[in-house]
């Protein structure tokens, strides 16, 4: 899809302005960066990393958070206390600082970044799943299932999980948005995924040094981030009204 390979360096073509408004080259719609790489191609390739990281982190967080939330809400007592404690400890860390600390210790790269971002997202799932499970557990159909001797794993799987699934889907959408924003921030700080792969945050970090001479380098990657996050948030809103039986 990209017009040029994102890593092709062409020093004769460096710092070209975009095709509009100044008379740039129509060959490079969004201009080129400090070593002559095509901005548009790099932004298109950057989408891969942002989306891959965002979706993986949301998915990983969804699995971990939902399981913990279900257990906390359903079993209550010491299990609930332990999981709620974990949630509150996680929330106590200003996340960017904690993420820097973790990535400094364990090193960057795709999997560590996804793992660290999942630490930010699992709490969203755990909190909502826990509170919904708590109220579902008191409902008659669960009591009835208990009474006829259905085991706990089966009740969780057949009765409670389907009821909380819509919320999980909605939260997943917002969590993907959050993960994409955080990934961009981490790449901007230089602790993201491999710096040789084009990513929006790393492009912004580079563009920052050329703010005075090449405004386009710091402008377009940010627009790409904002539009992607906006899309994920809007999808979350839409899913929220679609999946909520009362709002239909």
């Amino acid at each position: 899809m990209a017009p040029y390979p994102p890593t092709r360096i062409d020093l004769r073509q460096r710092l070209l302005p975009p095709a509009w408004p100044q008379p740039g080259r129509p060959a490079h719609l969004l201009g080129t960066d400090n070593v002559g790489r095509d901005m548009l191609s790099r932004i298109i390739w950057g989408a891969r990393i942002s989306l891959a990281v965002g979706l993986s982190a949301a998915l990983l967080g969804a699995v971990a958070g939902s399981v913990l939330g279900l257990c906390a809400g359903f079993f209550g007592g010491a299990v609930d206390a332990a999981i709620s404690w974990l949630i509150n400890v996680q929330l106590a860390f200003p996340f960017t600082l904690f993420a820097i600390f973790l990535l400094a210790v364990f090193g960057g790269g795709f999997l560590p970044v996804v793992g660290v971002l999942a630490l930010a997202t699992w709490v969203n799932f755990a909190r909502i799943v826990r509170s919904q499970t708590l109220s579902l557990r008191a409902q008659d159909f669960v009591t009835a299932a208990h009474a006829v001797g259905v085991g706990a794993p089966r009740i969780l799987r057949r009765y409670i999980f389907p009821a909380v699934l819509p919320s999980i889907v909605v939260v997943a959408s917002f969590s993907a948005a959050q993960a994409i924003l955080t990934e961009a921030a981490l790449s901007f700080l230089g602790v993201g995924v491999d710096p040789t792969i084009p990513s929006w945050g790393a492009m912004l970090n580079l563009g920052r040094n050329y703010l005075q001479t090449a405004w386009w380098m710091a402008t377009f990657p940010g627009i790409a981030i904002a539009l992607t996050v906006l899309g994920a948030n809007l999808m979350g809103d839409w899913l929220g009204t679609r999946l909520d039986p009362r709002a239909r």
């Binding site: 948005a177 901007f188 996050v229 906006l230």
Partner: peptide, 11 residues
């Protein structure tokens, strides 16, 4: 909610 704060800062 969608605009990254560091990008807004740069702009």
């Amino acid at each position: 909610l969608a605009i990254p704060s560091f990008w807004l800062g740069l702009m």
